[in-house]
Simulated assay, not measured.
Amino acid sequence: MTTAEGPIQPAKNLTKPERVAYILGKLQSLYPEPPIPLDHKDPYTLLVAVLLSAQCTDERVNQVTPALWQLADSPWDMAKQSVEDIQAIIRPCGLSPQKSKAIAKLSQILVEEYDGVVPNDMEALETLPGVGHKTAGVVMAQAFDVPAFPVDTHIHRLAQRWGLTNGKNVAQTEKDLKRLFPKECWNALHLQIIYYGREFCSARGCDGRVCEICTTCYPNRKHPKKVLKP
């Protein structure tokens, strides 16, 4: 295509440094102060809420936790409850047999080994029942404001669409994102990517050629971006 000034040059795909700078600026403008999506009042209730969110929406967790906190909202009180009573409340979150046992057991461990206090330590958190690396990272970031970059399948998908990683698993994606973005941005960026993905770049709503970030980073992308599933 040409104009009076000559042929129109096709837009160029951004380089990786350009993508990083653009994504940071765009997400900061859209979500300058991203709220924590899970309702909680302290590190313990956040820990339990994050555990419940595995393979469950944050919205559903927030519907379930008020009744759970009425039953028990501290390690001391939760450790006194039966697994059956916990499971009866959290059943709508899915995987309730495993989650109820984990909540009961981790509460007991917190009382017996940590004086009822959630440890401000990544390795210690990962030893608790039902608490994996991602859950521990969320608690470190959101309860203790320690820089972490928890990566779930949604962040993994967007990072691949945006050319920030080619990792085949969330562990590699986490390493790549930590290397690309300043440490002081990690906690907010984790949430900003989640909110952007839900609003503009969902699994079905965008294939790498629809949302503004995808089309700005890769204006010449011709085919759907294939994501390596973790």
Rank of each mutant, 00 (worst) to 15 (best):
R60V: 14
T45C: 13
Y31Q: 10
T57E: 13
G25I: 06
D58L: 06
L46E: 11
E59G: 14
Y44G: 08
P43G: 10
R60S: 13
L51A: 13
I36K: 01
T45G: 09
V48M: 11
E59Y: 09
L52Y: 03
A49C: 02
D39L: 14
H40G: 08
D39N: 07
E59D: 12
T57R: 01
C56H: 01
K26V: 11
Y44A: 09
Q55R: 03
E33I: 07
I36M: 10
L38I: 05
L38Y: 07
S29R: 12
H40I: 04
L27A: 13
A49W: 02
P43E: 08
P37R: 05
P34Q: 04
K41H: 14
L24T: 13
Y44C: 09
P32V: 09
L30E: 15
P35L: 03
L24S: 15
G25T: 07
H40S: 10
H40N: 15
L47M: 14
H40L: 12
D58K: 00
L46Q: 10
R60T: 14
V50Y: 10
E33K: 11
Q28W: 06
L38F: 08
T45H: 02
V48I: 15
T45Y: 07
L52N: 03
P43A: 09
L46D: 12
L51V: 05
Q55W: 14
V50M: 04
H40F: 10
L47F: 13
L27P: 02
Q28C: 13
Q28L: 15
E59W: 03
Y31K: 01
L38E: 08
G25E: 14
D58T: 06
P35V: 07
D39W: 03
V50S: 01
P43L: 12
L38D: 05
P32W: 12
Y31G: 09
N62Y: 00
D58Y: 08
V50P: 01
P32E: 12
L46G: 11
V61P: 06
Y31P: 10
E59T: 12
L24D: 13
T57D: 12
P34K: 01
P35S: 11
L47N: 08
P37F: 07
P37Q: 04
P37Y: 05
L30W: 14
S53V: 00
D42C: 05
P32S: 08
V48F: 10
K41M: 14
A54S: 13
L38C: 11
I36F: 10
T57P: 08
S53Q: 06
L52D: 01
S29G: 13
G25R: 01
G25Q: 15
L46I: 04
T45W: 08
T45K: 06
T45P: 06
V50D: 10
V61T: 05
E33N: 14
E59H: 03
K41G: 15
L27Q: 09
K26I: 11
